[in-house]
Design a protein around this nucleic acid. Structure first.
Length: 566
RNA sequence: CGGGGCGUGGCGCAGUUUGGGAGCGCGUCUGAUUUGGGAUCAGAAGGUCGCAGGUUCAAAUCCUGUCGCCCCGACCA
């Protein structure tokens, strides 16, 4: 297929200082990508080959699920975005430009607007539905902070499919099709992944799943149940706390706690475990100050809080504001006698005789009890799930893993069709808004995620379905005519059999070739060395194994085929 | 945007505190000897020290401005 001396893949021995995470470092070192600006990259040949393979699998599965591929423009006129109201909503995250007539355009961060107007213009009847339309294309988002190489670029490749149905029932079917197609895609990519329930966030809608490639240094945390199939982003996971027996209520008491500011201080100096304490956080929700209380060792989930309050702005209150409102600083806040709305995490109802701040500097209350000593405005699930929480489906303990979000599917409902007045005529001749879904896959991110999941100290270990090449042939000494001829004959044989092969014909020492082969992560390496060749044997090594094995020259093709397509 | 760090040959860095020779390792080129896990020796090329102003006899080094990059936070494929 290709000879090393003819292939442009500039490998680096050292880690470029721009790269922090593994996938970014290895993509740069192995010569797959080069940076052009923050979050904007060139894919060199090897990188592009991987991208194309991922795209192909995605494309096949989208087609199989009934999707039709199209290609929409990147440059879109302002009017389109005014219609949905997102010209202003999208804010600085949208790249904007003007043409020579001073007309406004955007570089599309997503394509709901365009697809909706397209379908609206040409679909008038329920008879034309459902429709599943997709594209694989660049997206542009002027991220506040692009980072981690391909993980969060400002220009990135995405597959986006949009479904149009006549009603919720139809949407359920389309959604299910995509859900299954996505499962097939990640299975075919040979990546370990998990599907999780997700918060549908700003895009809106009411049901949403994320597809997470599992990786130890992934950005997202996922809780899942070994017993049933429940899995969810910690942001979304419903927390069931272990039931505890209520103790008999003791008399409320005040404790002098000079200089004690944190939960840990109270643990260390008063021997009260964090699980017997309640912490109080003050927030400004659209300007109104509110209090949130949680068990001492828990983390507040701001998304749950924001969803509960249905507010636009939510910030932690600064200490001056808190002091003015409550008469005490951060270290001494508590719900007792507090004159603002209190939102209590569900778990607090399980607690008795706990300790919390007394809203007076240097004092805490002990033996506090909810109901007797204070009454919250609401008691709801507000904290982040943790390992060991009970599964909301089957009540077994949950486990925690990290993952990278590579796919996200949403039920949009009529959010965009209503704002953009996109309708069809139903059988009764009545105009109805399309019921929509949208389904994204980060193609370039998937490439990075595959590396985060599959690498070792020597470099990338590509899963076979997306490896840039299947085999690399390494003749130990290129000046040895016999070895060279053997290498070329194997190279020709494998190439003609349709395998993707690199022949490392560089005049380099064996060590250099091995290092590069490992770095770029080709799944199979065939080494032709002088000793074994005398016995008409070559060495075959799988990238993910330590040991190589010697095989007969004549068995090479069969052996390689067996590994590539078992 | 807030906080932190960094810009010196292709890559990784030292030099900046205390102003005065632009250096080191890797890579690249030439030749020789090597050839199963990033060889050795000899020689060579390559940098207006991010950019612009200023201070000074003299600036990589001090001052001002500006651009770019990376990390932590809000965002998300």
């Amino acid at each position: 297929m290709v000879k090393s001396t003819e292939l442009f893949y500039p490998t680096l021995r050292e880690v470029p200082n721009e790269a922090e995470i593994i996938s970014h470092q290895l993509l740069l070192r192995a010569g797959f990508i080069r940076r052009n600006a923050a979050g904007v990259y060139t894919y060199l040949n090897l990188g592009h080959r991987v991208i194309k393979k991922i795209m192909q699998i995605v494309r096949e599965e989208m087609d199989r699920a009934g999707g039709q591929e199209v290609l929409m423009p990147i440059i879109q006129p302002r009017e389109l975005w005014e219609k949905s109201g997102r010209w202003s909503v999208y804010g600085d995250e949208m790249f904007r430009l003007k043409d020579r007539h001073n007309r406004d355009f955007s570089l599309a961060p997503t394509h709901e607007e365009l697809i909706t107007s397209l379908v609206n213009a040409d679909v008038q009847s329920y008879r034309d539905l459902p429709l599943l339309i997709y594209q694989i294309q660049n997206k542009y988002r002027d991220e506040i902070r692009p980072r981690f190489g391909l993980m969060r670029g400002r220009e990135f490749i995405m597959k986006d499919l949009y479904s149009f149905d006549i009603d919720e029932k139809g949407l359920d079917i389309s959604y299910r099709k995509m859900y299954e197609a996505y499962n097939r895609i990640y299975a075919r990519l040979d990546l370990k992944f998990r599907v999780v329930e997700a918060d549908s966030g700003a895009i809106g809608g009411n049901e949403s799943h994320e597809f997470m490639v599992l990786a130890d240094n992934g950005e997202s945390e996922i809780v899942y149940c070994e017993n049933c199939n429940y899995a969810a982003n910690v942001e979304k996971a419903t927390c069931l706390s272990t039931e505890r027996e209520k103790e008999e209520m003791l008399e409320l008491d005040k404790l002098h706690t000079e200089g004690q500011r944190t939960i840990q201080d109270i643990v260390d100096n008063f021997n009260i475990p964090a699980t017997k304490q309640v912490k109080t956080l003050m927030y400004l929700a659209d300007g109104e100050i509110i209090a949130v209380i949680l068990r001492g060792d828990r983390e507040l989930n701001e998304i749950k809080l924001k969803n509960l309050l249905a507010c636009d702005d939510l910030f932690m209150a600064d200490e001056a504001t808190v002091r003015a409102e409550c008469g005490a600083g951060f270290g001494s806040l508590g719900p007792v006698g507090l004159d603002v709305k209190i939102y209590a995490d569900l778990e607090v109802t399980n607690m008795s005789n706990f300790t919390c701040g007394a809203n007076e500097d240097d004092y805490h209350y002990t033996n506090v009890n909810l109901g007797r000593d204070f009454v919250p405005e609401k008691i709801v699930d507000l904290r982040n799930a943790v390992a060991g929480d009970l599964c909301p489906e089957c009540r077994e303990p949950l486990s925690l893993v990290r993952g990278i979000e590579v796919g996200h599917i949403f039920k949009l409902g009529t959010k965009y069709s209503q704002s953009m007045e996109a309708t069809f005529l139903d059988p009764q001749g009545e105009a109805k808004p399309f019921v929509m879904g949208c389904y994204g896959i980060g193609v370039s991110r998937t490439m990075a995620a595959a590396i985060e999941q599959n690498y070792d100290e020597n470099g990338i270990i590509w899963p076979i379905p997306i490896a840039p090449y299947h085999v690399i042939i390494v003749p130990i000494n290129i000046k040895n005519e016999e070895l060279n001829a053997a290498a070329i004959s194997i190279y020709d044989e494998l190439s003609q059999a349709g395998l993707e092969v690199i022949l490392d014909d560089r005049d380099e020492r064996a060590g250099v070739k091995f290092k590069d082969a490992d770095l770029i992560g080709v799944p199979i390496r065939i080494t032709i060395g002088p000793k074994s060749w005398q016995e008409n044997k070559v060495e075959i090594k799988k990238r993910w194994k330590r040991q190589a094995e010697l095989i007969e020259r004549d068995n090479v093709l069969d052996k390689v085929k067996a590994i590539i397509a078992p």
